[in-house]
Computed example of a mutant assay.
Amino acid sequence: MLKKTFAALALSAAVIVPQALAADYVIDKKGQHAFINFKISHLGYSWLYGTFNDFDGTFSYDEAAPEASKVQVTINTASVDSNHAERDKHLRSGDFLNVDKHPQASFVSTGVAMTGEKTADISGDLTLNGVTKPVVIKAALTGMGQDPWGGYRAGFEGTTTLKLKDFDIAMDLGPASQEVQLILSVEGVRQ
């Protein structure tokens, strides 16, 4: 009888514990611990860097079953900032982000495939300039744990490369500038 009770408790713990490890996080936009940056070649001579200053997002992460994780991010495209007001005005125009017609871009994950102990390929649908395409973000767990304010945080970094023409961005910047790299660094606060 005692063996059956222990077996039942062990089975219950095996079922309950992984569920308890799954957690939902809100990206820490308020504390400015998250960034969506980009870089693109400027005529093949140098790199132009920029960021999106206004975005929101959530993710769920389960250490026991990371392939069940989910990500959702919405970017206000008018918040593009390349540290040059005239260039940013051009980036907001119909030549690039077309913010009047498409004020938001979004990413919604469709799957997570682990590629290492702390690395994964996050597949999802990116909507940019009114076009939705599948993309893969190469992601890595930066770290997780208690913060000094009594909360719990998890941080990830990821990269993906986009072809401008795939998202109907027709402005031709020359052969060295056909792709833009997105660099995402997010820290989430567990809810």
Results as ranks from 00 to 15, higher is better:
M1D: 15
T5G: 14
A7H: 07
A7R: 14
L9K: 06
L9Y: 10
A10D: 03
S12V: 11
S12F: 15
A13N: 08
A14Y: 01
V15P: 02
V15T: 02
V17A: 11
V17W: 11
P18M: 09
Q19F: 14
Q19H: 13
A20T: 03
A22V: 08
A23Y: 03
D24N: 13
D24Y: 12
Y25V: 08
V26W: 11
V26K: 13
I27P: 02
K29H: 10
H33R: 09
A34L: 03
I36K: 09
F38A: 06
F38P: 07
F38H: 09
K39T: 06
K39R: 12
K39L: 11
I40G: 06
S41M: 04
G44C: 05
W47P: 10
L48P: 02
Y49A: 08
Y49V: 15
T51E: 11
F52Q: 00
F52T: 01
N53R: 13
D54K: 08
D54F: 03
D56I: 07
F59C: 07
Y61N: 07
E63Q: 15
E63H: 12
A64T: 07
A65Q: 13
A68W: 09
S69D: 08
S69L: 03
V71N: 04
V71Y: 06
V71R: 04
Q72T: 15
Q72Y: 15
N76D: 15
T77D: 06
A78M: 11
A78L: 11
S79R: 08
S79E: 01
E86T: 14
R87D: 05
D88M: 04
R92N: 12
G94C: 02
F96G: 04
F96N: 03
L97Y: 00
L97I: 05
V99P: 02
D100S: 07
K101A: 13
K101W: 06
K101N: 12
H102D: 11
Q104W: 07
A105V: 11
A105K: 04
V108P: 01
S109A: 10
T110A: 03
T110H: 03
G111D: 05
A113P: 04
A113E: 15
T119L: 08
I122R: 00
I122N: 02
G124W: 14
D125F: 08
D125K: 13
L126N: 04
L126M: 11
G130K: 00
V131G: 06
V135I: 12
V136I: 10
V136E: 13
I137R: 05
I137M: 07
A139L: 01
A139D: 02
A140S: 10
L141G: 04
G143A: 08
Q146S: 14
Q146R: 12
D147E: 00
D147W: 12
W149V: 07
G150H: 02
G151R: 06
G155E: 03
E157I: 12
E157W: 14
E157H: 13
G158L: 04
G158S: 04
T159A: 05
T160N: 10
T160Q: 07
T161P: 09
T161M: 12
T161N: 11
K165C: 05
K165M: 09
D172L: 01
L173R: 05
P175R: 07
A176P: 08
Q178M: 10
V180H: 04
V180E: 01
Q181K: 14
L182G: 07
I183P: 04
I183H: 03
I183A: 12
L184I: 14
E187P: 00
V189C: 04
V189I: 11
V189N: 08
R190I: 01
R190S: 11
